[in-house]
Design a binder for these strands. Structure first.
Lengths: 142, 142
DNA sequence: CCTAAAGTCTACTAATTTGGTATAGTTTAT
DNA sequence: ATAAACTATACCAAATTAGTAGACTTTAGG
């Protein structure tokens, strides 16, 4: 499962993407609209700011706003930022590679192959999906 | 990430699958060969027994053995048994469905669509992979 | 230049999950 | 009878998750 942190981040980002280039939005407003505890949201938005996805304006009339175009913010990047690696085994992560302690021979490990396949498919789907494509899906009738 | 419990279970199952229909194997032997803490392994094997995948024989000459054919034990089932749902959001699990608390309208949620796609792909890969196919992969040169 | 609005920083904390360990059984082959 | 082997119950420490509290800094506007 992804953490609440990542889920909240995605909801907040979609919210801000809908208001791209329309000026700063209050934390308190996002918190209220998206049902996210305000103090928790503050920490999340700060992370997203430090990652260069959002920017903020302090003081009266301030708030947060998206600085990257919605097509350029994908779900994989957001997940990695807040939850760490996407892979289900440490030995199949790309950036945070670690050997499985108990593993006898990684080279011939059939279990590793399975989770490598899962990781590759998952990352591909998550990379394809951006804030823009998510907003696109929301307007389609089902 | 999957838990150590699931990883250990898979290693133990692959071990037992290689000795399918060759009589019971000692917990202590599996523990030693696969580098799994013995007491922890005991609990895991018991879970697998209660799920009808393994059986055990008590007393001298006893141990655990696989009762399902290796082709019929897939990774998805093992993961669900020990780690619970495979999906990354509660609202896209099949058996353990739960609404996301903060969600405004699940029907039009674009985030949900993304994680639904991930779940479907993941489950498909994990179902395809059985103890037999894992053992098959291990003998292939890379 | 004061003040209220708004983001920022540091430090807690409670509940849950994970990855175990300890101890005392019970069953069974020999 | 006894030793080998699985079983059941009960702990427990560390890490992670999902927050909260409170003081601080910045800035627009009067």
């Amino acid at each position: 499962m992804i953490s609440k942190k990542t889920k909240y981040a995605l909801n907040a980002l979609v919210h801000l993407a809908k208001k791209f280039e329309q000026g700063p939005v209050l934390i308190s407003y996002i918190s209220e609209q998206e049902n996210i505890p305000q103090k928790f949201l503050e920490a999340i938005l700060l992370d997203l700011k430090n990652a260069g996805i959002l920017a903020s304006k302090k003081g009266k009339g301030g708030g947060y706003y998206l600085i990257k175009p919605p097509e350029e913010v994908n779900v994989a990047d957001v997940m990695r930022l807040l939850d760490g690696p996407i892979a289900l085994l440490p030995c199949v992560t790309y950036k945070y590679y670690e050997r499985c302690e108990e593993c006898k021979d990684e080279e011939t490990c059939g279990i590793r192959d399975v989770f490598m396949a899962v990781r590759n498919e998952t990352v591909q789907i998550l990379k394809q999906n951006t804030l823009a494509s998510i907003i696109g899906k929301e307007s389609v009738q089902k």
